[in-house]
Design a protein around this nucleic acid. Structure first.
Lengths: 124, 124
DNA sequence: TTCGTTATTGCGACAATATCGCAATAAAGT
DNA sequence: ACTTTATTGCGATATTGTCGCAATAACGAA
């Protein structure tokens, strides 16, 4: 069952890539209008995640955000970086700094979700 | 409008303190049965948050978790530590290590939410 | 102890996010 | 052009969390 290239996937991919921020389904929906259904957007985004094209993070607002991360595509696809959400303008962006957090002995990490909210330089 | 001590608050507080983990409303509900209503649990937990007795974190499952953190009660109530959720047993615990993440210039942090999921020592 | 004020609770309704099933559509190979 | 089946759209549904309002119960005062 090979994947197929569709107009919807391309639209979503372009939006993700164009945005230098992490986006939610809501944001994508606003951008795509009725060009794509809500359920489809979620399915495509999660599919991209499985392919390793984008990474998903859970915001401290409880919503899912998806980001096409340049760094990820290049190296070893590590997502141990924080994400920052501006409480004023709402943008969610990947912070460049890699973080490593030592786990207790015997613990094995699968997923990293670092999130900081506050005010970005434009909104401070 | 001073706060009042109620049986429900006491029950929830005891459960939080007894648990050495961060708990969700769902977990508390299971423990308290019909001794407390869902909305009440949320209200009490958020009230505890406002009082600085517990801290709230958003799990990478999108749910809210609340933890009575020993360290917090003592010092300056800083929550810059990670939380770990075991994908097997479901426990969410506070990791001791304090983490600081440098923000870009002009950025101002308000909330820190560090979350790692994986397998704990018992479930590895 | 009794009473009155009002913080708190329970219940239902509601909002928001995300997923699922299924029929209709449309890629991609032959 | 045709067939296969991945994908989409639509509606229904699950889950999480909040809100409004009437009923209840803490707590201070009489």
């Amino acid at each position: 069952m090979p994947k197929r290239n569709t107009k919807t996937k391309q639209l979503i991919f372009d939006s993700l890539k164009k945005a230098d921020t992490a986006v939610s389904q809501e944001i994508l929906q606003a951008e795509l209008g009725n060009a794509a259904d809500r359920a489809t957007i979620y399915r495509v985004l999660n599919s991209f995640c499985d392919d390793g094209i984008v990474h998903k993070i859970i915001g401290d607002d409880g919503k899912q955000y998806f980001a096409y991360c340049l760094n990820c595509a290049e190296k070893k696809h590590s997502h141990n970086h924080f994400h920052f959400r501006c409480l004023q303008c709402g943008k969610v962006e990947c912070l460049p700094e890699e973080v490593d957090c030592k786990l207790p002995k015997g613990y094995h990490a699968v997923n990293f979700n670092g999130f900081i909210s506050g005010y970005c330089s434009s909104c401070s």
